[in-house]
Design a protein around this nucleic acid. Structure first.
Lengths: 193, 193
DNA sequence: ATAATTATAGGACAAATGTCCTTATACAGT
DNA sequence: ACTGTATAAGGACATTTGTCCTATAATTAT
């Protein structure tokens, strides 16, 4: 599994082979089963994790107690909210594993050492953050103020992995509609007329 | 009017009095009347502008030809999309004046010279961009997947200037609802039950 | 000042979405 | 393999939102 992580780092093109081997020693493998928490809302954001395999959902609970999913992450992606981690603030979201996963986690002190000793990591983090920002913009553009049917069509065309791997109720939460509206959209599309 | 701009720069705390006087010479006053364009969608983003007085709306036209307002800016704010300006790309939005306004505009070549000669401007731009990012997050949090009534209540409590200065149809567009839904929300709130 | 234009509020109905529910299917634990 | 739990699809109805329209108020141009 560590090879998945090493391969990811290799593909960034930012690190030499020695730097990769040196870097991964800072990360500890964490094995989590479906349903386990990686971070709980309100706790200090102590780790960032690289998902070697599996999947997570990030969500906040609103006043009515409803789970509000803001994103999913899969293998070969980092799982955390960087701003909160970098500032060591309390997390505004929970991150929970939705498939059995292996996550390579790094603590905040180790993260600081790593950035200090392998400066190319600054560039890796920067590009991860830029991708995050771009994803947020795209979400707004594609899902904000769209009908349930439009949302489902878009996710089907442009994020098909979500349809395959995410439970209906979680996908509905991500799209900001009820499960009923999502199954209705599916039904209409598959039996058109 | 130039004093409004100078005062804004003074309050940033980033520039000396000499730097302020030097800086403002790069900006040219542009007087626009309600309805005039500052930037048209598809044109290269040639200027950024500081709004000394007045107000603008930024919007894109969707496939159905409907105006989709993404933000409003008022006096003492910068009007432009920085990423597109910095990359000199074609603008993905139009910026149009909704009150008679005086905007201090700087061209891209002058902007480069300014950053080069008064390096503290990098910090000013950075903090403006951070504020932009924060505003986008807040929009998502407060208006995405909320009912029309919730949206109106929130704007009334937390962005009351919009209710006072923005036309109903434009505010509805910003909130992602129809004008009918907005007036309905108003009616319910003012004649409760 | 007057006329023409534009903006706002709200009625009536249609369409979309949410709530509550039941049934069938898939999955997990023993 | 069997039982209990979780998940998905969809019916029936209530609520919300959108569309179309009209009447009034406000704004702009002449």
């Amino acid at each position: 599994m560590i090879d998945v992580f090493k391969n990811y780092l290799f593909l960034t093109g930012a690190l030499s082979a020695e730097e990769i081997n040196f870097s991964v020693n800072f990360f500890k493998p964490i094995s989590l089963k479906k349903g386990d928490f990686f971070i709980r809302e309100g706790d200090t954001c102590r780790y960032i994790g690289f998902i070697a395999c599996g999947a997570i959902k990030a969500y906040a609970i609103d006043r009515e107690g409803k789970e509000n999913i803001t994103c999913f992450k899969f293998e070969n992606e980092f799982a955390t909210s960087f701003p909160e981690f970098a500032a060591q603030e309390k997390s505004r979201r929970s991150i929970r594993v939705i498939e059995d996963s292996i996550i390579y986690g790094i603590s905040y002190p180790d993260y600081l050492h790593l950035l200090d000793q392998v400066t190319a990591w600054n560039g890796i983090i920067k590009s991860v953050m830029e991708r995050e920002y771009g994803q947020k913009e795209l979400y707004l553009l594609n899902y904000n103020n769209k009908s349930a049917a439009d949302k489902y069509c878009h996710v089907l065309m442009h994020e098909p992995m979500l349809v395959r791997r995410i439970a209906t109720q979680d996908l509905a939460s991500y799209l900001g509609i009820t499960q009923r509206s999502l199954t209705r959209a599916k039904g209409q599309l598959h039996r058109p007329k």
